[in-house]
Design a protein around this nucleic acid. Structure first.
Lengths: 248, 248
DNA sequence: CGGTATTTTGATTTAGCTCAACAGACGTGG
DNA sequence: CCACGTCTGTTGAGCTAAATCAAAATACCG
């Protein structure tokens, strides 16, 4: 019935793009918690970061690996997951450019508590934990900004716990779509398109359900005219209806 | 069979105790993130806090109330919960003396994202959010300590999410008991006694299950000789076996 | 065009919820 | 100190949401 076509997402490839180091470093000024820094201060900070390019699906670091770096996403999307022994992954967060991840502690005996994998090709800046800590010590405003972000993440995480323990899978998925929409939504002919490759498995790992159940619910949502979806992409065509589905 | 007796917990009442303001403020020096301050600095900080006493079961603040204060628990136990419309509460954290709670943001338009209720009688210090923020700005070391605590809480919260989505209720409860044991455990004739009044409902709200299911599992654990438990108290008599139960 | 990864759909099973009734523990007031 | 009322915990029975198992269908990739 529907015309066969490729994903409507922006091409996640940035081959050849390979932003120059200068460009990548320049991006630091866009990072929320460095906004408060003067041009001079920013300059000094920039020198301490180094830049790397990753292809889609690359593992940036692994859970339980010794934690040495703090990273800042400059381009692309990254997902944070936590594994279990039986291969039942849990997807903890999806990151946009400007967000930091990795570790914050600089004690030296820390390990990463999750695994970071690129969801698209990506450019990432990194800095040693000790150096980052020095920056925070010397710039209380930056430290407070990082604290605010961390506190926000804690609240989101706790809200997620609340939903996991009190809502049906259907409502959980509706809520997740709404959250993703505010973070990754972009106007398109299909409605608010989530600018992010998203498989049923990813969605299931976020909602704490099986890929099959996620698929069934997404099919239902599509039938109800709430969303348009294809292979690894989703668009919300009727946000109002979705909001109603998510209600408790 | 078993002799009828009262809870083996320390008397949670502190009537008459009502620690003097001096005593309560003195406790600030015990708070992890103020450790780094000099006596002088601590003096200035102390003046900005005010002390209050609460009885068991008192609500310290309510979810969605305008957030104005940051609190530090000095004496007693406090639980943080998040409500749902249908009265199905979620228990997010249990606090020991020395821990902070409330809000961190000082934007003025913030509300509390959870409800704080005393689990025993309690002494609590509080400080205006703006004032606390000033302290953090002036003492980067304190700010970093608060950041570390917040980051730790985020990690615990995410680990909890992992368990909720991958483990059976039985294993979740076993894990929760282990965690509570390291935080509230105290040697006693019953084994490691959790120094904290804890009902089946509390446990259920932590594990994301029903009070009935929590009860069934606790009964089983007791039969297996893993724990001793009574009305609103629990002791772990066989930690090794409990650890085995919690394994994934 | 063939191969692989992803998604869909159906059938069966089950962990845990809900409802319901009871029993034991606490504490309070006489 | 005892009797009573109220919380808290226990136990049983049936029900349901969602997991699991199993194929088939579809989309994308080179």
């Amino acid at each position: 019935m529907s015309k066969r076509r490729s994903t409507p997402l922006k091409n996640p490839e940035i081959k050849g793009h390979h932003c120059t180091t200068d460009v990548r470093l320049g991006k630091l000024s866009m990072v929320p918690f460095f906004r408060a820094l003067s041009r001079q201060e920013l300059q000094k900070v920039e020198e301490k970061f180094s830049a790397n390019h990753f292809s889609r699906g690359d593992v940036i670091y692994l859970q339980n690996e010794r934690a040495t770096l703090l990273r800042v996403l400059v381009h692309g999307k990254v997902k944070l997951i936590r594994h279990t022994l039986e291969g039942k992954d849990v997807l903890l967060d999806m990151l946009n450019p400007g967000e930091f991840f990795g570790s914050l502690r600089a004690l030296g005996d820390e390990v990463y508590t999750d695994t970071a994998i690129t969801q698209t090709d990506a450019c990432i800046l990194s800095i040693g934990l000790g150096e980052f800590r020095s920056i925070l010590e010397e710039n209380p405003v930056v430290a407070l900004a990082v604290l605010d972000i961390t506190a926000d993440r804690l609240h989101s995480s706790r809200e997620h716990i609340r939903r996991l323990t009190t809502l049906s899978v259907e409502k959980r998925i509706a809520n997740i779509l709404i959250t993703l929409c505010t973070k990754f939504g972009e106007d398109s002919k299909y409605g608010m398109l989530l600018q992010l490759p998203l498989s049923r498995k990813d969605l299931a790992d976020m909602a704490g359900t099986s890929a099959e159940t996620a698929s069934r619910i997404m099919s239902q949502f599509q039938q109800d005219g709430i969303i348009k979806t294809g292979r690894r992409w989703v668009a919300v065509s009727n946000p109002a209806l979705l909001k109603k589905m998510a209600e408790e």
